[in-house]
Simulated assay, not measured.
Amino acid sequence: MRRFVSLAALLLCGTVVMVAGQAQPPAPAAPQAPAPAGGPPADWLPPTPKNLKLLPKDTDPKQLMEIMRGFNAAMGVRCVYCHVAGPDPNDMSAYNFESDRKEHKEATRAMMKYTDAVNQAFPKEVGEAPKPGESYVTCYTCHQGQRHPPVKAKAPATPGAPAAPPRP
């Protein structure tokens, strides 16, 4: 069970699952606002997952959408980045979610294994232990909302940041 919680937290890539308001009765039916360009409507759910290789086989569509939205937030990508779309990329019902044809899907699986391994090996003496359901390292740790993690450190935003010690 601990591994599932760790993996689920990893997949959420640092995003916090919004639970506020879930216990409240639903609001009266109103037109659903479309999601940002290229994304599914907020109330859309995928079909029952069929090709889960790392997630538990009993992951339900609602959980899966939270995980996928975590990838969106952590890497700034849309569904079509990893999944095979139909003729209209905005028509989610025409996607082939089971397909492993896209290399990004396999790369994501490899990175999920990698971040899980990093979290398992993370030195317990460093920093505070993550809260239950959280991880030390997530997709967002490196990607910071971008498809490819930045590879160069950014200069300090303010002057006067400590400099590297002089070499002897």
Rank of each mutant, 00 (worst) to 15 (best):
H104K: 12
P168M: 04
A8W: 07
P47C: 01
L12W: 00
N72V: 14
E98Y: 01
A23C: 04
F122H: 15
P89G: 07
A9W: 02
P49L: 00
P168I: 00
V126A: 07
N119Q: 09
R109L: 13
A163E: 14
V118E: 05
K105E: 11
A20D: 12
Q32E: 15
S6G: 03
A85R: 05
K105Y: 05
A8Y: 11
P41D: 15
K113R: 15
Y114Q: 08
P34C: 03
T115Y: 14
I67E: 02
V118S: 05
K102W: 06
G39K: 03
A85D: 09
Y114G: 10
V137E: 02
K53G: 06
M18I: 09
R147D: 07
T138P: 08
L52N: 12
A94Q: 15
K124L: 14
M111C: 04
P40T: 04
Q120N: 07
M68N: 07
T59W: 04
A107H: 11
V16D: 12
R101L: 12
P168W: 02
D88L: 03
V16I: 14
V17E: 13
C82S: 11
G21S: 09
R2W: 10
C79P: 04
Y136T: 10
A94I: 04
P162N: 06
D116H: 12
P150E: 13
V5M: 10
S135T: 15
R167I: 11
A37E: 12
P34R: 12
A163V: 05
A121L: 14
P46V: 11
M65D: 03
V77F: 00
T158C: 02
T141A: 03
M18W: 02
D43H: 13
A42V: 08
M75I: 01
D91N: 15
P56L: 06
A9Q: 03
L7A: 03
N96F: 05
G14P: 07
P40R: 05
E134R: 14
P87T: 05
G14D: 04
P159I: 01
R2F: 11
N51L: 03
Q144Y: 09
T108R: 13
E66M: 05
D100M: 15
Q22S: 15
G133E: 02
A85G: 09
Q22F: 12
A117D: 12
M65G: 06
T138M: 03
E103H: 04
A30R: 14
C82H: 02
P149Y: 12
